[in-house]
């Protein structure tokens, strides 16, 4: 029996056993709708629980003492359910390899909410110089003395990046190597020349801190938050694998928080992928 049929049977039983608590509050509009809602991975929290097989079909939490807690058989059902089935870029064979890897009976891999190595990508709109401009914020979960919190660790904001494009081949604008003998009086040239090439006077590996600039501009009132348009998560928690988690709000059973990208990687590829993720504009 596949999982959807299993859920259907569960909901069917629930449907006929249900006692309406009050005419005003509880009504089961249709059986079909309920099956869809049960099948949906409704929260990121549920994604974690399903990935690890830490809850039943109806979403009741399993704890360590429960016999089905992290049960490998039901876990493989759930793992199959957690992929965006409309995405043909993630090949079936790769999915199978991933499910086998995390479900290895000798060395199973589980996701850990507090385990680090996962980041949130939040696509937003800000008002900037009279226009609406996209900004992508990256957040990570930071452990505190008490509890934890999400913190912003990066921002991608195209106007800033365009501002700092550096001409690495520039052989015209520089401070000559004996500038120090004149106590750098030639700095007048740097700061009075065309401001667009100011960055050419910085060291080769100069990497502007866009988040500092971003916060500065918000504090000065030049950038104003409008809204969030989309959220996704990037997971690097499973050794040698990367996956992306996105929310699918659509008809059918394959909805909610699902794996939208999956890649097998070595440690070098992991660094370059992470860099790629941080430079994403969507």
């Amino acid at each position: 029996m596949n999982l959807i049929k299993w859920i259907s049977l569960f909901v069917y039983i629930q449907f006929y056993l249900r006692v309406e608590a009050s005419a005003q509050t509880i009504v089961a509009p249709t059986l079909e709708d309920e099956v869809v809602l049960y099948a949906s991975t409704k929260q990121v929290n549920q994604f974690f629980r399903r990935f690890n097989n830490e809850e039943s079909i109806d979403g009741s939490r399993y704890y360590e003492k429960d016999s089905l807690y992290r049960n490998p058989i039901t876990r493989s059902f759930f793992l199959n359910l957690l992929f965006d089935k409309e995405n043909s870029f993630v090949k079936e064979d790769l999915k199978r390899q991933f499910i086998q890897y995390v479900g290895d009976p000798e060395k199973p891999v589980f996701l850990d909410f507090h385990g680090g190595n996962w980041i949130a990508q939040v696509n937003t709109i800000f008002y900037w110089e009279g226009k609406e401009v996209n900004a992508t914020l990256f957040l990570k979960l930071q452990e505190e003395k008490i509890g934890s919190k999400w913190v912003i660790n990066r921002v991608c904001f195209r106007p800033f990046e365009e501002f700092f494009v550096k001409d690495t081949q520039d052989t015209v604008h520089f401070l000559h190597p004996l500038s120090h003998e004149l106590e750098f009086m030639n700095l007048y040239k740097v700061f009075h020349d065309d401001k667009n090439i100011l960055q050419n006077y910085t060291e080769r590996n100069y990497d502007p801190d866009y988040l500092a600039l971003f916060l500065f501009e918000v504090k000065k009132g030049n950038l104003r938050f409008k809204t969030v348009t989309d959220v996704k998560f990037h997971f690097f928690q499973v050794d040698n694998w990367y996956f992306e988690l996105s929310q699918f709000n659509r008809a059918g059973y394959n909805t909610g928080w699902l794996i939208s990208d999956l890649q097998k990687l070595d440690s070098k590829e992991k660094d370059s992928l992470l860099k790629n993720v941080y430079n994403r504009y969507e």
Partner: peptide
């Protein structure tokens, strides 16, 4: 109308000592 289905997340402690969770419900 309210669907009978709901989903309750785990509770997470936040820096002020309170716990936070999310309850998901559906309305027609």
């Amino acid at each position: 109308d309210w669907y009978s289905i709901h989903y309750i997340s785990d509770l997470e402690k936040q820096p002020d000592g309170k716990y936070v969770g999310v309850v998901t419900i559906y309305q027609r």
